Measured scan of single mutants.
Amino acid sequence: DLSALRVEEVQNVINAMQKILECPICLELIKEPVSTKCDHIFCKFCMLKLLNQKKGPSQCPLCKNDITKRSLQESTRFSQLVEELLKIICAFQLDTGLEYANSYNFAKKENNSPEHLKDEVSIIQSMGYRNRAKRLLQSEPENPSLQETSLSVQLSNLGTVRTLRTKQRIQPQRTSVYIELGSDSSEDTVNKATYCSVGDQELLQITPQGTRDEISLDSAKKAACEFSETDVTNTEHHQPSNNDLNTTEKRAAERHPEKYQGSSVSNLHVEPCGTNTHASSLQHENSSLLLTKDRMNVEKAEF
Rank of each mutant, 00 (worst) to 15 (best):
E9R: 10
N12F: 05
Q53V: 06
K55M: 05
V121Y: 08
R135T: 10
K108Q: 06
L62F: 03
E236L: 15
N276Y: 01
C23L: 15
I206M: 12
S216C: 05
V161A: 12
N157A: 06
P272Y: 01
K250W: 00
T160C: 12
K37Q: 02
R251S: 12
K69L: 00
A220P: 14
P257I: 05
V198C: 00
S156W: 01
P141E: 06
N65P: 01
T194Y: 02
E99D: 10
L204I: 11
S156G: 10
Y260E: 12
K222L: 01
K19I: 01
T166I: 07
S264R: 04
Q209I: 05
R162E: 04
A252I: 14
E83L: 13
L155C: 08
A224P: 01
I88N: 05
L268R: 03
L155M: 10
L21D: 15
G262D: 12
T149S: 05
D244E: 11
E32T: 09
Y129W: 05
V10N: 15
L51C: 12
V298L: 03
C46I: 15
G274R: 01
T76A: 03
L217F: 04
D213V: 00
T207P: 01
S35F: 09
R162I: 06
Q147W: 02
C60G: 15
S216K: 11
Q59E: 01
L21P: 15
M127P: 01
Y129A: 09
S150H: 01
R77I: 09
S266K: 09
G199T: 04
D231S: 12
S3T: 08
S228F: 00
N52W: 04
R130P: 09
S197V: 01
I123V: 09
Y100F: 09
L29K: 08
F106N: 07
D200P: 01
E74V: 03
T149P: 08
P272I: 07
L85Y: 08
I30S: 11
G182S: 14
T248S: 09
A101H: 13
R295D: 07
K250D: 03
P272W: 00
N143T: 05
E83R: 13
G128R: 15
V10K: 13
R6G: 06
E148H: 03
V161I: 08
V121D: 14
L136G: 10
L291G: 02
C23I: 15
P61S: 03
Q18R: 08
C46D: 13
K87E: 08
L217K: 15
T166C: 12
S145C: 02
P208L: 00
E226Q: 15
M47L: 08
N276I: 02
V153S: 10
S75D: 00
S145E: 15
I41R: 10
R135G: 05
V270S: 13
R132H: 03
C63I: 15
E140C: 06
R6T: 06
T248N: 10
F45E: 13
T166D: 08
I25V: 05
S126W: 15
I170W: 02
A223D: 07
R165P: 15
Q73N: 07
R6Y: 04
E99K: 07
K54E: 07
E187L: 01
L155G: 13
Q73D: 12
V232M: 03
Y195D: 12
L155T: 14
E271S: 04
E229K: 11
F45M: 08
E140T: 10
L51M: 06
T68W: 01
Q80L: 07
Q168R: 13
L217E: 13
E214W: 00
D200F: 00
C26Y: 15
N234E: 01
S186G: 02
A107L: 02
P24T: 07
Q18V: 10
S35V: 05
L146H: 11
L94A: 06
L151K: 12
T248M: 01
E249T: 03
L158H: 10
Q93P: 10
R162S: 12
R162F: 10
K259F: 13
L289H: 13
L29F: 02
R165L: 13
F45L: 06
L291W: 00
I206P: 11
A4D: 05
V7N: 05
N297L: 05
D294C: 14
Q80C: 09
R130G: 10
L155V: 10
E140H: 10
K37E: 00
D95N: 15
E202D: 10
C26F: 15
E99G: 09
P57L: 07
N286L: 00
S122H: 05
Q59V: 14
V82W: 14
R70F: 13
L203E: 14
P257W: 01
E140W: 14
L217Y: 01
F106H: 03
C60L: 15
G199P: 15
D218F: 00
L94T: 11
K19R: 04
N267E: 13
S228V: 01
L62N: 12
C63K: 15
S139M: 04
S150I: 00
T194W: 00
P272M: 09
L85I: 10
T149K: 12
S264K: 13
Y260T: 12
R295G: 15
Q283E: 13
L27F: 06
M17I: 07
K54G: 12
G199F: 08
R162H: 01
G128E: 09
V34C: 06
S139A: 08
L290T: 15
L21C: 04
S266L: 01
S219A: 06
N65M: 06
S152I: 00
F106S: 13
N131A: 08
T36Q: 04
A4I: 10
I89R: 10
A133C: 02
F42I: 08
